[in-house]
Amino acid sequence: MNNEQQISILVLDDEPVVCKRLRPILEKKGYAVETFFESEEALKRFKEKPFHIVITDLKMKGLDGMQFLTAVKELSPDTEVIVITGFATMETAKESFRKGVFDFLAKPFKLGEISDIIQKAEVKVRGRIS
């Protein structure tokens, strides 16, 4: 791994509009992006290939975002996880940080806001891999 290495991002949200909005923006910025609507599928993929950055929604059918976050951090503690949620509560925010989330972002947000967070996460990831 080096600073030229492409940063990989996994986006998980059961609302297709979120993945649809994020994917082209992130790809344009040079990230390798994979999007998922179902957490089980996303986790299966993560087990095959750990990602540098994970962006996940919290409220999902089946394995919810908090469980997904826990699983990701267990499998790959260095992966930076950004939680996005449409139904934010103080408890979920605190719990996310207890579980080592990089940032917690409530919807609605502008693409610029999440891009800034991803950029900060990238700096942290690159700092670790350089």
């Binding site: 934010a88 509560t89 103080m90 925010a93 917690f104 972002l105 409530a106």
Partner: peptide, 8 residues
Amino acid sequence: LAGNTWAH
């Protein structure tokens, strides 16, 4: 609201 959302 900010307590829940941790908004800027």
